[in-house]
C-alpha cells in the first residue's frame, strides 16, 4: 500500500489541477465570451443599470395588483433555497392547501389551479402555467383598474411553449411589463 501512496498523491494533485482548475476556468472563459448574460445569472437591469433581479429566480410580490408566483416553502429565500418536503399523507399539507384555496377562490372562476396552491421544488420557481396566470387576471384588473383583455394579451405575449415541456409564463416578466405600462404609483 505504501508504494501506492506516492502515485495516489501525485495523480490526485494532477487531476485537481486538470478537473478542478483548468476545466472550470476553460468553461468560464468560453461561457463568458459566448453567453455572457446567462453565465452571469440572467440578470435584469433597469435603465439606470440597477439590478432588478434574475429572470430565472422568482421574487415575492405583495399586493393584489401583481401576478403572484408559485408559493415558496422557504419564503423565496435564495440562500438557502428550500422545499416543503410535505408528504402527500401529511395533514399539514391538506390544511395549508385548503386555507390557500379558500383565499384564492373567486366567484365564477372554477377550481383553483394546482400550481397556485402547491409550493415549488426550489421555492424559486419563476414560472406559472398560462392557466394559473389567467386565473389572476380578474383580481389584477380590478386592483389596477385596467381591462381584463389587456392582461389576457400580456400573458399571451409571454407564453413560452418548449417542444419538450409544458407551456409557461415568466411571472417577473409579466410584472415588469405591468410596472412599465402602469407605474405602481397609479395603482396605489
Amino acid at each position: 500500500m505504501l508504494k501506492q501512496i506516492r502515485p495516489a498523491i501525485s495523480v490526485l494533485a494532477f487531476m485537481t489541477l486538470v478537473t478542478g482548475v483548468v476545466y472550470p476556468l476553460t468553461v468560464t472563459g468560453v461561457a463568458q465570451l459566448a453567453f455572457p448574460a446567462q453565465a452571469n445569472g440572467s440578470l435584469l437591469h433597469n435603465q439606470q443599470g440597477d439590478v432588478l433581479g434574475s429572470a430565472l429566480l422568482a421574487q415575492p410580490f405583495e399586493g393584489a395588483q401583481w401576478f403572484q408566483p408559485r408559493l415558496s416553502a422557504g419564503g423565496y429565500a435564495t440562500v438557502a433555497s428550500g422545499a416543503s418536503n410535505l408528504a402527500p399523507s401529511n395533514p399539514a399539507l391538506a390544511e395549508r392547501i385548503a386555507a390557500d384555496a379558500q383565499r384564492l377562490q373567486a366567484e365564477g372562476q372554477g377550481a383553483v389551479p394546482m400550481q397556485l396552491v402547491t409550493t415549488s421544488a426550489s421555492g424559486l420557481d419563476p414560472h406559472l402555467s398560462p392557466a394559473a396566470a389567467q386565473f389572476q387576471i380578474a383580481r389584477i384588473a380590478a386592483a389596477r383598474g385596467i381591462p381584463a383583455a389587456s392582461l389576457e394579451r400580456l400573458i399571451e405575449q409571454h407564453v413560452e411553449k418548449p417542444l419538450v415541456g409544458p407551456a409557461v409564463v415568466n411571472v417577473l416578466a409579466l410584472n415588469l411589463a405591468l410596472a412599465d405600462n402602469s407605474p405602481p404609483a397609479k395603482a396605489e
Binding site: 418536503n85 410535505l86 377550481a111 383553483v112 402547491t118 426550489s122 414560472h127 402555467s129 409544458p166
Partner: peptide
C-alpha cells in the same frame, strides 16, 4: 382545487 397529479415539490 384542480384535481390533477400533485405539484407540491415540483417545478412549473
Amino acid at each position: 382545487i384542480e384535481q390533477s397529479g400533485s405539484l407540491e415539490g415540483k417545478e412549473s
